[in-house]
């Protein structure tokens, strides 16, 4: 009798399930900062072009203590929060309306789609002309930039609500108002949130652009100011704050989404 042999069958796609330790996620950032710091310390690149991360942090701390950051940050926050809330509210309401009513859809949707492609910042001079150089023109431009992604997403969210669910609701006794309130609104919430997240990026972009063009205060004007003075480290502080602002914004929206959409 021939000798019995064994050939093991092993999982050949084990690489798909490879485990990565938790510290791996900070490795890239820490590594980048370390290389950056070394380059700056060695004097390979002039600090005018690339200040060391430690310098940026020290300068940032000084600016925080003397209140410069707080003042500028509050000016920016006021504009972006007000603009965002206004734009998002109108966007959701108009979007729901366009989605529900055939008449509103026929009349309103072509209007929305014809204004949508305009880069909103191009309208800033017009708004300054109409509304003055004050806060109103900047808030309006942010609101407008937020409005469009939200309105379009809300609209398609409403259109994508499963017709079966509407039929089910009607079968179990819902009137039109309750169909809207209990089916169409929750059904389009995931799309509305996609729009809100998209709009968060837009609002930050418009905030900085508007502040660079026409503002005495705000993170955007601060960045521009230090750029003109060629104080690169303080310019970088501004950039860092903007990045943190964007991050906070996204996290807040994610948290809100989890709260409002527990079923997803």
């Amino acid at each position: 009798m021939a000798q019995q042999q064994k050939r093991m069958i092993t999982n050949r796609v084990a690489f798909l399930e490879q485990k990565v330790p938790a510290y791996a996620s900070v490795l890239g950032i820490v590594g980048l900062l370390a290389v950056w710091e070394i380059i700056a310390r060695m004097g390979w690149v002039s600090p005018l072009f690339l200040p060391a991360p430690t310098t940026i942090v020290t300068d940032g701390w000084a600016m925080l203590v003397n209140g410069e950051i707080i003042d500028n940050l509050f000016a920016s926050l006021y504009r972006i929060v007000l603009g965002y809330v206004l734009g998002a509210s109108f966007g959701i309401i108009i979007g729901l309306l366009l989605g529900f009513s055939r008449w509103a859809d026929a009349i309103g949707t072509p209007v929305v789609y014809s204004i949508y492609p305009i880069p909103k910042i191009a309208l800033l001079p017009l708004f300054i002309l109409w509304l003055g150089i004050g806060e109103l023109s900047k808030v309006t431009i942010i609101a407008l930039g937020v409005f469009f992604p939200v309105v379009i997403n809300t609209y398609s969210g409403v259109k994508n609500v499963d017709e079966m669910l509407i039929k089910a609701a009607v079968t179990f006794g819902s009137n039109h108002l309750n169909v809207i309130r209990k089916v169409i609104l929750p059904g389009s919430l995931p799309m509305i949130f996609a729009g809100l997240k998209l709009a968060a990026g837009t609002s930050l972009l418009l905030l900085v652009a508007a502040e660079m063009i026409a503002a005495q205060q705000g993170i955007g004007s601060m960045v521009l100011h230090y750029g003109n003075l060629m104080i690169t480290s303080k310019l970088m502080v501004g950039v860092l704050i903007l990045s943190l602002l964007g991050l906070t914004f996204n996290r807040t929206l994610q948290w809100l989404e989890k709260k409002l959409l527990p079923w997803n």
Partner: peptide
């Protein structure tokens, strides 16, 4: 009179 319907697609409200 009332009707109760059980749908092929089930059609439960996912948010409830």
């Amino acid at each position: 009179p009332t009707l109760g319907i059980v749908f092929q697609e089930i059609a439960l409200f996912p948010w409830r």
